[in-house]
Nucleic acid binder design. Sequence first.
DNA 1: ATTAGCAACGAAAACGTTTTCGTGTTGACA
DNA 2: TGTCAACACGAAAACGTTTTCGTTGCTAAT
Lengths: 346, 346
Amino acid sequence: MKKKITLKQIAKELDVSISTVSKALKDSVEISEDTKQKIQAFAKLYNYRPNNIALSLQNQKTKTIGVIIPEIVHHFFSKVIRGIELVANKRGYNVIIGLSNESFDKEVINMQMLANGSIDGFILSISKETLQQQDYHHFKETINQGMPIVMFDRVVNEINCDKVIINDSKGSKNAVSKLLYNGCKNVAIITTKDYVSVGKLRTQGYLEALEDFGITPDSNLILKVDDELVSEDHLESLENEIKGLFKNNSNIDGVFAVNELYAIIAMKVARNLGMNIPEDIQFIGFTDGVLSKHATPSLTTVSQHGQEMGEKAAELLIDNLEREDEEDYFRTVVIETNLVERESTK
Amino acid sequence: MKKKITLKQIAKELDVSISTVSKALKDSVEISEDTKQKIQAFAKLYNYRPNNIALSLQNQKTKTIGVIIPEIVHHFFSKVIRGIELVANKRGYNVIIGLSNESFDKEVINMQMLANGSIDGFILSISKETLQQQDYHHFKETINQGMPIVMFDRVVNEINCDKVIINDSKGSKNAVSKLLYNGCKNVAIITTKDYVSVGKLRTQGYLEALEDFGITPDSNLILKVDDELVSEDHLESLENEIKGLFKNNSNIDGVFAVNELYAIIAMKVARNLGMNIPEDIQFIGFTDGVLSKHATPSLTTVSQHGQEMGEKAAELLIDNLEREDEEDYFRTVVIETNLVERESTK
DNA sequence: ATTAGCAACGAAAACGTTTTCGTGTTGACA
DNA sequence: TGTCAACACGAAAACGTTTTCGTTGCTAAT
């Protein structure tokens, strides 16, 4: 086992100074051709690579990006990461991942772990607990120390930083309009509690669409699911809520759900109740996951373009990091959604 | 914007030496109570945190783990990462992610980027291209330089390192046995080309189960899909292959697929051909993804326990990193699979 | 024969820590 | 009064780089 070789060892071995070795490896004009060749050959032989940590300390930059997301076992978030990784790598950056697991404390701890020199900047999506508690001091402090942040998807106005979002209300308005245009008279929405910003916005889009079509919203058709209950395993409660929705409102002929899973489960319930999709009832979900594509019938969804969001976020951050002038101005990029039509709608 | 404060600045401000500050913050007995209090108070006020990079350079360890996986938009891999992150964080480590995107070159580049001091050890799953080319020199070199590697899922005997795998042949043998036990007489398998080690092993388990039941394998019932063709978008070719399989062998009454997607698509094709699941034909897949759980009918699968694999891999690596004695011995941990029975089997 | 100038290289600081090994001051004790 | 611990603190090396600023020794020009 031969440990990694350093400049010092090369210098000693070849009986020159460390500076000479460093310069020779950078092809500096200060060093004679002979010496350069000798040193370069030796370095190649021993497979020399500069130590990244030493470089980071020297340059005061690490060339790595910290990403903090609420959950990784999630199609949307992993697509975002793929996007981030893609452009980060292309521009010579590494990506280090922290999971908040939707917890405020873990979000704070993760940020502290990374903010002490390990990374040059953050890309993150806020955890539900943080959104609920509305405690954003850790973001403010981080930014205050000169570390840039880019937020995506779940953002908050209170913080001044770059943001990448989708037009949630517009996306859902389009979706609901599609249902109405297709002839649905009673469109229900399955959404989350209001503290989840995207849930709130998507509900808003639903209402706007109804208004455009001159329909008065019926509160019985708005199901706000408590997200706490939908923890991987007890989905039965969700199923029951949806079943209740259908039974109490037998006139429902269209459903818009603010995520993929809700839509899939709703379709299942509907089918069990003997309804035909899309003849009797039509469905649209949100997010472009695997479920939508491979369900039967496949689900029409509002595509969120996760990878594109990740790419854009990484570009914003790196641009910011590599910008010369110190004045900071913040941009908000809106990624357009589009409706992917599949079998669950006419 | 106040930049992060350093020991030097504190020392200057309080008119003591750097060493004194350092010791005071570690509550060293060398420093008087008065001075300690003064320094600690000042440090707290300015929110001092030691610079991670400097610590890494000093200690020659970074407390971060490098993870290289072929693909992140994949339920299994993201579960593994979740497992890794869980125990890594618990034990004070960070996780830095590299995606090989199933490419040999990207795997090599990623390893080089990280192996130069950025991390203490690797956890990885080999890319398909690497498996195909059977070029493992980058692994050997890394290990040779004293950087430990833990491989999971896609491993290779040729390399001497810790490994976390599942018993692929046993898992698939169990699954196929279940089908046979349930009365299936003609069980087909949908698998990958043989260079994917797990595909090969799972095919082997299929054959073993047949043998146990005294059935001679029928090569017409073994469909080896070329993985290149199944790239997210042109799944039609896969569908057609499967359709061919069913049409040419109308007696098929059981299907074992080496992954979730193949099984789901096969079910879809079968249903379109008018077969009833599970009455006419039963299905079992491999991996525990979202599709299996939420498909209709839901799919019986061999559960791979991705998160557990990740946890175990991280434990192996960190144990290795923190072990005192230098002699290296390598362990291979086998995670047990189990059959999750759902609606696609009787 | 000076000296300016150049080519080739080395010394040292700097990045932010930790840690070892001084060193100076105080107090107690003989 | 002189000696020696004990105490409290500082200087400096080390981790591996890069870069600035010398410092040589030589050639060529005056």
